[in-house]
Amino acid sequence: MTDPLKLHAFADDQLSQDEKTSIEADLAECAESRSELDCIKNLKALVSEHHETHECRNVWSDCVARLNEIDKTRRVEGFVAKYAWGICGAFAACIVIAGVAQRQVGSRLSSNDLARVAAGLAQVRSSASPADPRISAELGRMLDVAKLSIAPGRMRVLRADRGLIGGQIATRLIVRDAIGDMGLIVLPGIASFDGTSPLRDDPEFSVGHLGASNCLTWHENGRSVVLIGERNAQDLRDVASHINVQ
């Protein structure tokens, strides 16, 4: 009998012409091989023609939905890849613009920042003795440069420090009145100070703590003023009424 594997291949039309010719010669002589071939062909026809078909439209719809998701993801990835530099540039521009806007609107200072700013100012002149008219005159000029005026009969300047913040002059004064010494810092621009809250009776002024001292802050003529002293908020407010920022 012919090799069954060859008969299967013959039934499947998977033989070369020479092999087919050889098998056909075998089949002509061998009834058993013919019977086997018929059996193979019948089974093949049965499976081929009578197998079940399965409903799969819903599965295909799910596939299409997933393909849509893949396409959408690819579009987003493609957009990001194509315009990555542009997106980064836009973010950078936003950061710069926000920084500039923040600078124009006003900055926020914490007590640490304030101490750092104050420490960065260089001493200009100090006077332990108010009797020295030369030094007093020089401190007076400092007040003029800082566009500050204080009630002369009420307090006097002991020391003045000055420096530049953002290209504008910042000034720190140590002043003394009948009760004691205070610090007075005048900063360019409008700054808000973390940890301070508006005075209940006078919301233009804010009060807070700086170290062990109280401090009073307010804005005047486009500048920010901080008055620091070991006294209560109302006393600081009274002192502030004698300080004029031009």
Partner: peptide, 28 residues
Amino acid sequence: TEPMSAEAEVPDRVLFDNAVGAEIEEAL
């Protein structure tokens, strides 16, 4: 590989006439 016809003297007509899709799938 054994020949299929040797193990089954059953005529294909008898074997296949009653087979429908579900039976073929089950046998498969």
